[in-house]
Simulated assay, not measured.
Amino acid sequence: MTSRKRTAGAWPLVIASMLWGTTGTAASFLPGNVSPLAVGAATMMFGGMLLFAISARTAIAALQNAASRRWLVVGAIGVVVYPLAFYSSMSLAGVAIGNVVSLGSGPVFAALLEWAFERRRPSRVWAVCTATALTGIAMLAWGSDRSEGALSGQASGDTMAGIGLGLLAGFSYALYTYSSSRAIRAGAASGAAMGGMFGFGAVALAPLLLALGGPLLQSATTVGITAYLALGPMFTAYIFFGIAMRTLHSSTATSITLLEPFVATLLAVVVVGERLLTVGWLGLAVVLVSVLALATARQQRPALESP
């Protein structure tokens, strides 16, 4: 595969990140009686079912293959934990802080996983671009309007718990990103890896949705928002995510997805009406430049594993 094709593998992830960036704004329109756990469970469960449905035959084959199955099962743990921790983090600490901690910690955890399992050290380009993007995200958080409530519309004041959940979300995101790359390198097709991993996670999330998901059906608006979250930021975005993971290391992938807070902040300003200070606008520019630099840098394709 040429270096141009390897670099082009980053662009599906840019599209996925833009879709993920709409999550906070869409979820902010849900009424306060909707639990963030229900939102996370519904999004991942329905999206995961669709991902499995479009690749059922190959996904089942990937789950039957011992080399890829172990990584798909590990990744499914991250799939289950991530949405529950992510939406709860935004509910407790606010949309800006929840996004910053969850997405900002992802690249660090991904790099640690690659070092722990492969002794792979991050490249200098990755380190510089990721550090710069994280600086921009910190500027974004500092420059965001803090007068807005949390995702549920009521700030709980339990910011530290929200930050802790954000760190858990970041680790979970890195875990299923890394696991999907390992499953693909073990021979599973990207669609099969996404279908197997998210389908497995969907089964695990079903009981929680049955227990807490009633308020999601209270109106056409709540049903519509839930459907969008499942079809857009979940189903469609993870198809692009799977395409990107054919050629990207997980640490690079999680760094590129730092574009999500950029998109989320722009939508919060344009759609929700939140304000952004000058330092926030500068942070937006820093994030955009850093992610574009990483997306256009030459990427070394992960090697295929032996079963």
Rank of each mutant, 00 (worst) to 15 (best):
T2I: 15
S3L: 14
T7S: 13
G9Q: 08
L13C: 11
I15R: 05
M18P: 02
M18Q: 08
L19V: 13
W20S: 01
G21R: 08
T22D: 15
T22W: 09
A26V: 07
A27M: 14
F29M: 07
L30H: 05
P31V: 04
V34Y: 03
P36N: 09
F46H: 03
G47M: 01
M49K: 06
L51C: 04
F52S: 07
A56S: 13
T58E: 03
A59L: 00
A61M: 05
N65I: 01
N65V: 04
R70G: 04
L72M: 03
V74C: 13
G75A: 04
G78H: 02
V81R: 02
V81A: 10
F86N: 11
Y87K: 02
S91Y: 02
S91T: 10
A96G: 04
N99A: 01
V101L: 01
L103D: 02
G106F: 08
A110S: 04
A110C: 12
E114D: 09
E118K: 04
R119Y: 00
R120H: 08
R121L: 07
S123W: 15
V125D: 15
W126V: 06
V128E: 13
C129M: 03
T130L: 09
T132C: 00
I137N: 14
A138V: 02
M139L: 05
G143L: 06
S147W: 15
S147G: 10
A150E: 02
A155P: 13
L165M: 07
G170C: 00
F171C: 09
S172H: 02
S172N: 02
Y176I: 03
S181A: 11
A183I: 06
A188M: 04
A188Q: 14
A189S: 10
M194S: 09
F198V: 05
G201T: 09
P207D: 10
G213S: 10
G213K: 12
P215A: 11
T222S: 11
I225L: 06
Y228W: 09
L229H: 02
A230G: 10
L231H: 11
M234N: 06
Y238A: 07
F240H: 14
I243H: 13
T247D: 05
S251P: 12
A253H: 13
T254N: 14
T257E: 08
T257R: 15
T257D: 08
L259N: 04
P261V: 06
F262I: 00
T265Q: 05
L266P: 10
R275T: 07
L276I: 04
W281C: 08
W281H: 09
A285M: 12
V289H: 14
S290F: 14
A293D: 01
A295F: 02
A295V: 08
T296F: 03
R298T: 00
R298M: 13
Q300H: 14
R301H: 07
R301S: 12
L304Y: 10
L304S: 06
L304P: 12
S306P: 13
S306W: 11
S306C: 11
